[in-house]
């Protein structure tokens, strides 16, 4: 089993606050990896470091063996490493189909293709992915008129049509109606199995992450606290202490 992302010795501080200290982790290819930790433990900071939102102070981040810690967001995204946002970001004024069409991958696009219309199979593919996340009926509505949960699903669909190799999801279930969560877990798993997309998920909901992930990393106070299979993490004394605040 190869590692898709390798983070080794990454540190990041904001002013005097150390958000990440000497973090190392591996995201194995083809699997679902979880990242948990109490609020303020540096999870989103680590995500931002990986996708290129800010520079890191030290350490190295590789994606499929290629160093990416100096690259910028669009370059990294074109390699096939995509993220969703904690606060969903979609194009509110455009309808869902247009949102999907924008997200069609431009990795190997020849220059002149930017003037072409979208081919029929792309439209079909967009429709089928919207079907997959359950938004087919709403595909011609302005994306801004969808509920928050539906917008999250749309953002997920936009990520899927981009055909990433790996998708970094920042709290996919936050703000989603609890009755919809099971459906979402199912879709995430199918994205992993059917579409072959490696997932790396930040999640607060323990039930969700324990169900979903093959292996889990736990951060606390910017340090790597624990790593293991879901049941190992669940029974790890340090993790429980960190979450209960007994530190």
């Amino acid at each position: 089993m190869t590692d898709m992302i390798e983070v080794s010795g990454v540190s990041k501080h904001y002013g005097g606050v150390i958000a990440n200290n000497q973090i190392s982790l591996n995201v194995p290819s083809g699997r679902i990896t979880g990242l948990i930790g109490p609020n303020g433990s540096g999870k989103t900071t680590l995500f931002n470091s990986i996708v290129g939102f800010h520079p890191i102070d030290e350490g190295s981040i590789t994606f499929e063996g290629q160093e990416i810690s100096k690259m910028r967001v669009p370059q990294i995204a074109r390699l096939g490493l995509l993220r969703t946002f904690q606060q969903t970001r979609i194009y509110g004024k455009m309808n869902c189909m247009d949102n999907m069409m924008i997200s069609v991958p431009q990795r190997h696009m020849p220059l002149m293709r930017m003037f072409k219309k979208f081919p029929a199979e792309t439209l079909e593919r967009a429709e089928s992915i919207l079907e997959f996340v359950g938004l087919y009926q709403k595909r011609l509505l302005p994306a801004g008129s969808l509920s928050f949960g539906q917008q999250k699903l749309l953002e997920f669909a936009m990520a899927l049509i981009n055909e990433p190799k790996i998708l970094l999801l920042d709290e996919p279930t936050a703000g989603i109606n609890p009755t919809l969560i099971n459906g979402l877990i199912d879709r995430l798993r199918r994205a992993n199995e059917d579409f072959g997309i490696t997932l790396f998920v930040i999640e607060h909901n323990m039930r969700v992450i324990m169900n979903l992930a093959d292996n889990i990393y736990c951060l606390a106070h910017g340090e790597m606290l624990a790593h293991g299979k879901p049941d190992e993490i669940q029974n790890d004394k340090r993790v429980i202490d960190a979450y209960l605040g007994a530190h």
């Binding site: 290129g52 939102f53 800010h54 520079p55 100096k70 690259m71 910028r72 967001v73």
Partner: peptide, 10 residues
Amino acid sequence: RQIQMRRQRR
């Protein structure tokens, strides 16, 4: 400034 910001990935 652009070169400077590029170094900060911004």
